[in-house]
Simulated assay, not measured.
Amino acid sequence: MSTFDTDLLIVGGGPGGLATALHARRLGLSVIVAEPREGPIDKACGEGLMPGGLAELTSLGVDPAGMPFHGIAYLDERRRAEARFRGGPGRGVRRTTLHAAMAARAKEQDTEWIRTRVNTVEQDAHGVTAAGVRAKWLVGADGLHSSVRRAVGIDVTAGTPRRYGVRRHFKVPAWSEFVEVYWSRWGEAYVTPVEPDLVGVAILSRGQPDLAWFPRLSRQLAGGERGPARGCGPLRQVVSRRVAGRVLLVGDAAGYEDALTGEGISLAVKQAGAAVTAIVEGAPESYEAAWHRVTRNYRLLTRGLVLASTPRPARRAIVPAGRLLPSAFRFGVNILAS
């Protein structure tokens, strides 16, 4: 008979890992989180919680401070198309604020931590061993370039087109009740209000990003103190599967399309719930189908929009199309918001 240190070892203490911990504790599993970094963890992120993801967090007892936003707006230099959420607001939340709130809630729920990096994983029919911990199950929530994924032999390739993201904060008064997406020939800039006098600006592109691509936005940010840049990519990671024995992948480690539609954190929280359900039911293979179900709308809409907007003439048509077809624009936004 194997002796276990915990029911569930979670590798990665970001939002995906902490959401997994909260779901697991709610269902009575003992949890250890392996994360080498201390304190709130920052990374390149659009920092917008869609209404559905915000509701999931609230159900877990997490209610981070931030700025409400009521929809998504697409802008170019002359036009604007906007769509309001039907089911209540989302919330712009600094990544560090979100992480601190989730970590505090996980500690309230008696989650344990070990400060270590996991590079090797061993498993048998009964359990998993990593970082000196013997667990019944392991969830890898350690990001785009997951070491857990590599350790258990799950294949991944960087998809095309290869796009990268860079985020900065600007100290200026938040001016919009929407997340604004500025389109140019070379990329998109996402502006999310996160505090009354602070906005996050994330630029997605295939090359070195430049705020000068967006003159309308540059004028809006003029004079604002800018914070340090944080980058990530390539964004699209095509993962062959999300389950290997008693190891399951959650969040960016499980595969990623693009940040274009902005619901990465919301999806990670929903994936976490699906993974824990599969673990509690003793049916890890069911998580694969659940992951596809949870991410279907995101994958189809995001991939379609990325491919459709790759040719420059098509990019120029995105905002005009949103204005000409407002019902379709609202429909797409609200599918992703749910």
Rank of each mutant, 00 (worst) to 15 (best):
V156H: 05
V118W: 07
P161C: 11
L98G: 09
V139G: 02
A158L: 13
A151D: 08
W113G: 08
L144K: 08
T97V: 15
G140P: 13
S147E: 10
L144A: 15
R149L: 04
V128S: 05
R95N: 07
T97F: 00
G132T: 09
V156T: 12
G159C: 13
G143H: 07
T120K: 13
V133R: 01
G143M: 00
V139Q: 03
A151M: 05
K136S: 07
T120D: 14
N119W: 11
A130S: 05
Q123K: 09
R115Q: 11
S146E: 10
D110F: 09
A151V: 07
S146D: 13
N119P: 00
T157L: 08
A131T: 00
V156F: 05
H145I: 04
L138M: 06
I154G: 00
T96Y: 09
A103D: 13
D142W: 07
D124H: 12
A125Y: 00
R162Y: 07
A106E: 04
A106N: 05
G132R: 10
V93Y: 01
A158P: 09
V148S: 11
V121W: 15
L144W: 02
Q109W: 07
R95L: 11
A131G: 05
V139M: 04
A125S: 12
T157W: 00
P161A: 10
A131M: 07
R134I: 03
G132M: 04
P161Q: 01
W137R: 01
I114G: 02
D142S: 10
A131D: 01
M102D: 04
V118T: 05
V139H: 00
V121P: 11
V139K: 01
V156E: 13
R115L: 00
H126E: 11
H145V: 05
W113D: 07
T116A: 15
S146V: 06
S147H: 14
Y164F: 15
G159R: 12
T96G: 01
T157E: 08
R95P: 12
G140W: 09
D155H: 14
R115H: 12
A135M: 06
G159M: 06
T96D: 08
V93P: 06
D124L: 11
K136I: 07
T96N: 05
G153K: 12
V152Y: 11
A151H: 02
Q109N: 12
E108H: 14
L144E: 10
G132K: 08
D110I: 00
A131Q: 00
M102G: 04
H99S: 00
R115Y: 11
V118S: 04
H126C: 01
V128F: 06
V156A: 15
A104I: 00
T116F: 02
T157A: 14
A104R: 06
